[in-house]
């Protein structure tokens, strides 16, 4: 029969063969398929004991870096907060007092630096925007908490400890296609 669109297909269900009507041979076939999976490698990773290897460019928990002399790099310029598409970063700037030169590298510093980890989308734009080498995303996982407030990370969680430096060399290796703007 000719139809308007000429795309109509008459589907005809094939009649079952004798062995299919018997059910049992087909069931045996199915049983063989399932039993094969008994000996296959399991896909499960037993999480807390085993961990999956992270990608080299994994973007997790942020860190605020210090320089070699242990002074905070951040000057509270606010470029990261401007760059942040999720508006997760809040900075309050302050002026360095005399006698604090060993704490902060430049005259201005971040009195408070908060990242809301629930808003953060871990895009890494803050890291790209930072002119002072201060903020990096690391391969650490943001831990789970019970309260929403606990996800707002302050400087206590973000700034690296002097005796426990965090390695960000992986993040500093840029892709070969990445050409930083030189001035």
């Amino acid at each position: 029969m000719l139809t308007l669109s000429n795309r109509k297909k008459v589907m005809e269900q094939e009649k079952l063969s004798f062995s299919e009507k018997l059910y049992l041979p087909v069931i045996a076939k199915g049983l063989l398929i399932t039993i094969k999976h008994l000996f296959k490698r399991k896909a499960t990773i037993k999480y807390p004991e085993q961990t999956r290897e992270f990608a080299k460019v994994y973007r997790g928990h942020h860190v605020l870096k210090r320089d070699e002399q242990g002074r905070e790099n951040c000057t509270a310029c606010g470029l990261c907060a401007v760059a942040c598409p999720a508006e997760a970063i809040t900075i309050v700037a302050a002026e360095r007092k005399p006698g604090e030169e060993h704490l902060y590298r430049e005259e201005k510093y971040a009195a408070s630096y908060d990242i809301n980890m629930l808003r953060c989308i871990f895009c890494g734009l803050c890291e790209e925007a930072c002119p002072k080498d201060a903020i990096y995303l690391t391969d650490r996982i943001v831990e789970t908490e019970y309260e929403r407030e606990d996800f707002i990370y302050g400087k206590d969680k973000l700034v690296e400890k002097i005796d426990q430096r965090i390695d960000v060399s992986k993040r500093k290796i840029k892709s070969e296609f990445y050409q930083p703007i030189k001035n």
């Binding site: 399932t34 039993i35 999976h37 008994l38 296959k40 490698r41 399991k42 896909a43 499960t44 037993k46």
Partner: peptide, 9 residues
């Protein structure tokens, strides 16, 4: 096991 998982452990 039949579904390539480990099961309760």
């Amino acid at each position: 096991w039949l579904q390539d998982r480990i099961g309760p452990n």
